[in-house]
């Protein structure tokens, strides 16, 4: 008795387990009709496999996918880790804005400091390079405003007298008042 055609189809797909597979093989040797069906199924499979596939470059396709995945991965980074590309003009405008904001903030702080604490904040400059009293007076004169000067004496206290003491009057200087 001939097997079901479904079984012959599965046989062509190598999906019939032993011992049925061997029994089917024996039957095919004897039965021309079943051999014909088997031949037809196998020739259909061969025909399908031998139809040329549209040409494609597997390597290039793989590279394109890898690049796309990498781009998407970058897109999921936290904001501070993202690479941002801007046109030059936009980048320049952004830089200018950031710089301007910084300068503005700085000036605002400086202004606030003077309002609150007078000259104390703004006049803290290192005057160590000033060699003598005249130079100090010139510096103060150039500023044209009042200021406090702190003179740090050497820790040893080992002084020697140089020149004669001088009294200075505020009115003798053209700038603003000084103490």
């Amino acid at each position: 008795m001939c097997p079901d055609k479904q079984l012959l189809s599965a046989y062509c797909d190598d999906e019939v387990p032993s011992p049925w597979k061997e029994r089917l093989a024996s039957h095919l040797e004897e039965c021309e009709a079943c051999r014909k069906t088997e031949g037809l199924y196998r020739s259909l499979g061969r025909a399908l496999r031998e139809v040329p596939s549209p040409a494609f470059d597997l390597e290039a396709a793989s590279a394109r996918l890898a690049a796309r995945l990498a781009r998407r991965k970058r897109g999921r980074l936290p904001l501070w880790k993202k690479r941002v590309s801007l046109p030059f003009t936009a980048a320049a405008a952004a830089a200018l804005l950031i710089f301007g904001s910084g300068v503005g903030l700085c000036l605002a702080f400086r202004g606030g400091g003077e309002d609150a604490g007078g000259a104390a904040v703004s006049s803290r400059e290192n005057l160590a390079a000033i060699k003598d009293m005249n130079e100090l007076l010139e510096v103060l004169d150039r500023r044209g405003r009042a200021g406090e000067v702190f003179i740090k004496l050497p820790e040893t206290g080992d002084f020697e007298l140089k020149g004669n003491p001088v009294f200075l009057r505020e009115a003798e200087f053209s700038g603003g008042g000084r103490r």
Partner: peptide, 9 residues
Amino acid sequence: KVRAYRARE
């Protein structure tokens, strides 16, 4: 199995 057979037929 059935679908493979029917496809061939």
